Amino acid sequence: MKSVIVAVALSLLPLPLPAFAAGVTEVKANAHSCGEIAQIIRQNKKVFVRVGFGGRSFRYPPAQCGPGDKRSTGSFRDAEGKQCVLDYACVYDPASLYNFP
């Protein structure tokens, strides 16, 4: 019975990496220009932009950010080395009730 409760509890927790969520397109920032990445985000609505080992999650409206996240801007370097600043980034929200210990 304990294993069933633990399995149910774990299934209710949000996944730590947005790339694992269903329906999310993953894009490497060093393979595209800023304009191409913005176009991919508009077309796919949910995109995880891989930057080095980590990355940024972008959700184009009307898609919502996940629990514990808030909508903001995100910045990274593209394939040409230009600094990209894009809206609709989902970033950690320290004021969210989901992020209290």
Rank of each mutant, 00 (worst) to 15 (best):
M1D: 11
K2R: 12
K2G: 06
S3W: 13
S3M: 13
V4I: 13
V4G: 00
I5C: 05
V6Y: 13
V6M: 11
A7P: 02
A7R: 03
A7W: 07
V8N: 13
V8Q: 14
A9F: 15
A9P: 04
L10T: 03
L10M: 14
S11L: 15
S11C: 15
S11E: 12
L15V: 04
A19E: 00
A19Y: 00
A21V: 11
A21T: 13
G23T: 03
G23L: 03
T25A: 10
T25R: 12
T25D: 08
E26N: 03
E26Y: 05
E26V: 07
V27G: 06
K28F: 09
N30W: 10
A31M: 06
A31K: 08
H32C: 10
H32D: 05
C34Q: 11
E36Q: 09
E36W: 12
I37S: 07
I37V: 12
Q39P: 09
Q39D: 15
I40M: 05
I40G: 02
R42K: 10
N44W: 07
K46N: 10
F48L: 03
F48H: 02
V49N: 05
G52Q: 01
F53N: 06
F53T: 04
F53L: 02
G54S: 12
G54E: 11
G54T: 02
G54F: 14
G55W: 00
F58V: 05
R59A: 10
Y60A: 04
Y60P: 06
P62C: 01
P62I: 00
Q64S: 07
C65L: 05
C65G: 06
C65S: 08
G66L: 11
G66W: 10
P67M: 02
P67A: 03
K70D: 10
R71W: 15
S72H: 14
T73N: 07
G74I: 01
G74T: 06
S75C: 00
F76A: 00
R77D: 07
D78L: 07
D78A: 03
D78C: 12
E80P: 10
G81K: 01
K82G: 09
K82L: 13
C84S: 09
V85T: 13
V85E: 09
V85P: 05
L86W: 14
L86E: 08
D87A: 08
C90D: 06
Y92W: 14
D93K: 00
P94W: 15
A95C: 01
S96M: 12
S96W: 13
S96I: 10
L97E: 12
L97I: 11
N99M: 09
N99G: 08
N99S: 11
F100Y: 04
P101T: 00
